[in-house]
């Protein structure tokens, strides 16, 4: 079976095992903020690779340019929509996000630390979980669908105010067991194609998979505006898409498995600048 998998992989990562190196370019946001899109791999992945690279380096000239300017980046229009939501009073407590947190840019520094252990709840929480906790318990408002438009717009706003700050999720202490679970998932082969995350994004980044340029699968740019579906996409939806492409039954966005995987994948990009909303294919 392993031989068959190898053969399948060889076919997928075809001919010629074309190495299309990541583009050597520098991402300067709005002509002002220089982003860290490549840096030394954090200690916990240094056995697998020397350098971590943002997905930005794997995209074409026009797509890279689209992310360089906030006006050219179509993802920013959804950030503006979320800004309206941020300031809108909702729910039984007559509160908006701004009632407690102030202006949205006060949230700079929050995105890079999620997913993160919540002592009170005794669980690792994603940003989405924390947003819904606020909505339910602080605002008395309805929780949002995990990867629905309201939620993904809001996480894009929260990412946008942290752009340029380095991803910095904690993987030790009480978060460690979740991180270990995520790592286990990352290296587990799924589906009829028997592919793990690592098969594509660790062993073969920079190679072409048919017409697609494989990246390291970093999530520092999420949520991402994809040219494919012309909307913002949450990291868990991308995980789902990847696992589906291995022809497997996938986990659900917001599931325990994807929370663990998000923590692990985020930790592989510790040191890369937050880019969300990035522009990708």
């Amino acid at each position: 079976m392993m031989r068959l998998t190898g053969a399948l992989l060889a076919v997928l990562l075809t001919a010629p095992m074309a190495s299309a190196d990541p583009v050597d370019d520098t991402l300067i946001l709005n002509g002002e903020t220089e982003m860290v899109t490549r840096t030394a791999a954090p200690d916990h992945v240094s056995d697998a690779m020397d350098e971590v690279l943002s997905g930005w380096h794997f995209r074409g000239t026009e797509t890279r340019a689209m992310q360089e300017d906030d006006f050219d980046n179509p993802g920013m229009i959804f950030v503006e929509k979320a800004e309206d939501t941020w300031n809108a009073v909702e729910g039984s407590e007559d509160k908006s996000c701004a009632s407690c947190h102030g202006a949205s840019d006060q949230m700079a520094g929050v995105r890079p630390t999620y997913p993160k252990w919540n002592e009170e709840a005794g669980e690792v929480r994603t940003l989405e979980m924390q947003v819904n906790d606020c909505r339910k318990n602080r605002m008395g408002a309805e929780e949002w669908k995990y990867t629905g438009a309201d939620m993904v717009n809001m996480t894009a706003l929260l990412a946008s105010v942290s752009r340029g700050l380095p991803m910095d999720v904690a993987i030790d202490g009480p978060a460690q067991s979740t991180w270990e679970q995520g790592k286990e998932l990352y290296y587990t082969r799924f589906g009829q194609l028997e592919l793990s995350c690592a098969n594509c994004h660790e062993d073969n980044y920079g190679n072409m998979i048919r017409a697609d340029h494989l990246s390291q699968g970093q999530i520092n740019g999420f949520p991402v505006y994809r040219l494919k579906n012309t909307k913002l996409n949450a990291a868990h939806d991308r995980f789902k898409g990847c696992i589906r492409d291995t022809r497997a039954e996938t986990f659900k966005p917001g599931s325990e498995e994807f929370i663990a995987l998000e923590l692990y994948v985020a930790s592989r990009g510790n040191g890369l600048s937050v880019e969300g909303p990035a522009v990708r294919n």
Binding site: L12, I209, R210, A211, D212, R226, K228, G241, C242, D245, R280, N281
Partner: peptide, 8 residues
């Protein structure tokens, strides 16, 4: 216009 592996 390329129709890709996973991105397209």
């Amino acid at each position: 216009v390329t129709i890709g592996g996973c991105g397209g």
